[in-house]
Computed example of a mutant assay.
Amino acid sequence: MYYSPTIVQLAGFASNKTALLLSLVTAGLNALGSIVSIYFIDRTGRKKLLLISLFGVAISLGLLAGVFHETTSHSPMVSRIQTSHFSNYTCPDYSSATNPGAWDCMKCLKASSPDCGFCASPTDKLLPGACLLSNDTVKDLCHDESRLWYTRGCPSKYGWLALVGLALYIIFFSPGMGTAPWIVNSEIYPLRFRGVCGGIAATANWISNLIVAQSFLSLTEAIGTSWTFLIFGVISVVGLLFVIVYVPETKGLPIEEIENMLETRSLHFRFWEKSQKPQEKKSQAV
């Protein structure tokens, strides 16, 4: 969510304005999901909502990983003819390459001495384009010829699927993982430790947010966007398993029963069944 505009550009949408507008849509979905959670949190239950959320998040991240794998594997080629049209601004790495015919858009964008960009074909952005130096002058020259200028991601016919994956991620994340953990966090601690434990949980949450925010772009550059989303998808699956095994269903339970349940380390694998109250267990035992 922090990098929605960047993800949109990585998906092949070159315009900054378009990327920002689409990121506003994801922000709206996030707000809508929070409102939806108000309705479902006490009807569906915390644990079930978390499981649905994490399952959807994992699927969405898997979709994003697949889409970005396709976009990087099938990016437009670099054309010598198109590049020679801007002969004074040819990417140095492309000029000195031993096999420039094998260069595609992604390889052009990975050039770093200096940074290079991809100027798409004027007739069709999916056709071979030019690999040029990345600066404002070249960007303006590219735009002057009604071409699209790419510096983050490459043009792709699968870009819209990345938007679908991003939207699904927000739709699944916001009502569940976006709100339910805070509610569960306020219910599971004994009164004498609630302040300290709540503070520890909030600190852990923001440290995790910081790690994601600081590592996302570095990971996309180091291992690629598809592998980055795949790693996050695996983490989501681990979180799903953790919720199944360790997180209790607290819907409709008094604080005393929640505390007793956690003290006895009761694991509720059947999250759809309401746990028995202590007095019910005693009556069954008799």
Rank of each mutant, 00 (worst) to 15 (best):
R194V: 14
Y189H: 13
C154Q: 05
F173R: 02
P190I: 07
I200E: 07
I188Q: 09
R192M: 07
Y169C: 01
R192V: 13
G198L: 14
G176L: 11
L161S: 00
P190Q: 07
L148V: 03
A204L: 15
R192W: 12
G176S: 12
C142M: 11
C142W: 01
A167E: 04
R147P: 05
P155D: 15
L132H: 03
L133E: 13
P190F: 05
R192L: 10
V184H: 07
R194T: 10
G178Q: 12
D136S: 15
V164Y: 06
L132Y: 04
S156Q: 06
D136M: 03
L166C: 02
G199L: 08
G165L: 00
P155L: 12
L161C: 09
N205K: 06
E187R: 10
G178L: 01
D140F: 09
A167V: 04
I200V: 15
I200L: 13
G153Y: 12
V184E: 02
S174V: 06
G176N: 10
G195Q: 01
E187Y: 03
L133Y: 07
R192D: 11
C197Y: 03
K139L: 14
Y169P: 00
C131I: 02
I183D: 08
T203Q: 11
L191R: 11
A202G: 11
R147D: 02
Y189P: 00
V138N: 07
L191Y: 09
G195E: 10
N135V: 06
W182C: 07
K157F: 04
T151Q: 14
G178P: 01
L163K: 00
Y169V: 04
E187V: 02
D140G: 02
N205Q: 10
A180F: 05
S146M: 10
C131W: 04
K157V: 06
C154R: 07
I207D: 05
A202L: 13
N205T: 13
F173S: 05
I183M: 12
L168G: 15
P181D: 04
A180W: 00
N185H: 01
D140Q: 15
L141C: 10
A167F: 12
F172Y: 11
S186M: 06
P181H: 04
W160H: 15
Y158V: 02
G153H: 12
D136C: 02
S186W: 11
P175V: 14
